[in-house]
């Protein structure tokens, strides 16, 4: 509630002159004079929105806090390139969200200035930018899924280290009847029907098939297998990231990339915890974006004149908060 009844002693309220001369404006009794006074100088909707946002601050603080604590407490954490994160895409998404924050502010200003048409246009633009953000996010998720990075097994094909468990997982995958057929097909394909890259990859695949089946297998052999399946991109000593976008430039990309049906287990040290935190944080953020988009769609049904400015302001407050969370998520996930 925005207004609370406050009893004021005689002579202290704005109508004191009428009390001083003994009359009580026809009240006829000597009870306290009640007057409405707002509890906080803001509208009810905005108060509720801010209360909600203060709970949201704690919600995301818990998520971000656990991420930071998990990440810095972990003995090994994957580098952004190990888990196929692309910094330019993340920076682009940051830019998209900042733009959408500006457009919703402009929608509010237009509505206050009684320019309903303009307000609608800005609102529509905000909706489109939010959708673009989710689209890019979906594309990024797809890049993770295609590399077998899921938050949980059985879908996740990420192993923490090239140990015996990893070796047996690779053997199990190679022993899958579907894969056996595919491998036979690949072995029987004449070399001139394959690209040079595929021929070289086929030779390497045959080599690792022998390696995982060998009884005198060494830990280093399994590291070689893991490196062949999905190499961990390295940063050049000069800090050059050129060509790192899709793994190593050209010939050095993993067998999983060259033969997408292969879907062999891969090794990313620390990758499982990374996947859990990444999908949890970005997933909750994406849900918040989605809710914002629903709110904008509903608001587009209004006239968006000065009378709706309060609604736009509240939706905007929520949207800026979503932007705020991403401002912290982007460097923490993509650049740390």
């Amino acid at each position: 509630m925005n207004a609370s009844a406050i009893s004021l002693p005689h002579g202290h309220d704005g109508h004191s002159h009428s009390h001083d001369d003994g009359h009580h404006d026809g009240h006829g009794h000597h009870g306290p004079v009640l007057q409405y006074q707002p509890g906080l100088p803001l509208s009810r909707g905005k108060l509720i929105m801010w209360l909600f946002l203060s709970t949201e601050i704690m919600f995301f603080a818990a998520l971000l806090g656990s991420y930071v604590v998990l990440r810095f407490g972990a003995p090994v954490w994957p580098k952004p390139h190990h888990v196929h994160l692309s910094e330019p895409i993340g920076a682009f998404n940051t830019f998209v969200l900042i733009c959408s924050s500006v457009t919703i502010v402009l929608a509010l200003e237009s509505a206050r200035a009684n320019k309903a048409g303009q307000a609608k246009l800005w609102m529509l633009l905000t909706l489109l930018l939010g959708t673009l953000f989710l689209g890019v996010k979906g594309y990024e998720y797809q890049a993770k899924f295609s590399h077998g990075i899921f938050p949980q097994s059985p879908r996740s094909r990420i192993y923490e280290k090239p140990d015996l468990y990893y070796g047996s997982a690779v053997r199990a995958r190679l022993g899958d009847p579907v894969i056996i057929d595919k491998l036979k097909e690949l072995d029987d394909t004449p070399a001139d029907k394959l690209t040079a890259e595929q021929v070289s990859a086929r030779a390497r695949l045959q080599q690792i098939r022998k390696m995982v089946a060998s009884p005198e297998q060494q830990a280093f052999d399994l590291a070689v297998v893991a490196d062949q399946v999905m190499p961990l991109p390295t940063e050049g000593p000069g800090g050059s990231h050129a060509g790192d976008g899709g793994g190593h430039g050209g010939h050095a990309s993993g067998l999983n990339d060259i033969f997408p049906w292969l879907k062999l287990p891969a090794v990313i040290p620390g990758g499982n915890m990374w996947a859990s935190t990444y999908f949890l944080l970005t997933g909750f953020h994406a849900i918040h974006v989605l809710v914002g988009l629903i709110v904008f769609t509903i608001l587009l049904g209004y006239k968006l004149g000065p009378k709706d400015a309060g609604k736009i302001e509240n939706a905007g407050l929520y949207w800026h908060f979503v932007d705020l969370v991403w401002i912290f998520l982007f460097p923490l996930l993509y650049l740390f």
């Binding site: 003995p75 090994v76 590291a223 893991a226 040290p269």
Partner: peptide, 17 residues
């Protein structure tokens, strides 16, 4: 659990390749 020695092992494999 993954340890820095595993990362080193992976790096050595990449170097060998």
């Amino acid at each position: 659990m993954a340890r820095t020695s595993d990362v080193r092992l992976m790096e050595q494999a990449a170097e060998a390749k």
